[in-house]
Amino acid sequence: MARGPEAPSLANAVLAWCVAGFILAPLIIIVPMSFSAASSFEFPPLRYWLGHYRTYFSSADWLQPTLNSFLVGIASSALTLLVATPAAFAVNRREFAGRRALQILLLTPMLVPSIIMAISYYSVFGSLGLNQTYTGIILAHSCVSIPVVLIAMSASLRNLDRNLERAAAICGATPTQSFRLVTLPLLRPAFILAGFFAFIHSFDEATISLFISGREVSTLPKRMFASIHLEADPVVAVVSALMIFIAVFAMAIATLLRQRRQPARA
């Protein structure tokens, strides 16, 4: 490797890899933890077994929240896509007065601390009877993932070559045909990716769920929170390890999607 003046120094390299290690290490130690035979948080584990996995997969106490999280995640990401996609088109592809202000407004749910939203939903949903219901959690999660979807779609929408739609029009396609035959197929990976992000966002959300999900529709993060907070249940390690596996897998898929999305450039 050429070491020009623009290349980083050795000290920089060492520091960088140390920081990367700091980022990665806590995630890595989870995996052996999940196979530990000990009954509480202990690292390095003394013996390994699959017992905690068995506990996780046979305990309704864990499986129900997992299922809830999946249901809420799927429903809320679908709802978010439905609500946010038209706005993503408008904000990225139309010129209108107050566009910037609107863009900022649409981003704020991400920037307002969850605890504020949590207590707000807690009292409003309380009087609407939406606390401890799927509807309540789905509504709340969708709201917070609108900016997530917007950000995820914006890059693709802006990278989508305007000339492609022009080409479709000049070839004789009606606006509907152009949307169906050109825009939609080209944006499909972006839709999937945005939906994915919204799902992950909902799946990971803990603060709001802590307040509004109650026992009935407890989500996985809420269950984990309780576990870490109160009982030091080693099954948390299993759930965490599974979530890391899923994350690695999901990221691999997302990377593939993103590569496929790259338009062919001359």
Binding site: D161, L164, I170, G172, S178, V182, L186, A264, R265
Partner: peptide
């Protein structure tokens, strides 16, 4: 789409 014109774009704009 109703003008019956053919057009070649600078970046070709082929549907990828």
């Amino acid at each position: 789409n109703q003008r019956d014109i053919g057009m070649v774009f600078q970046n070709y704009a082929l549907f990828p």
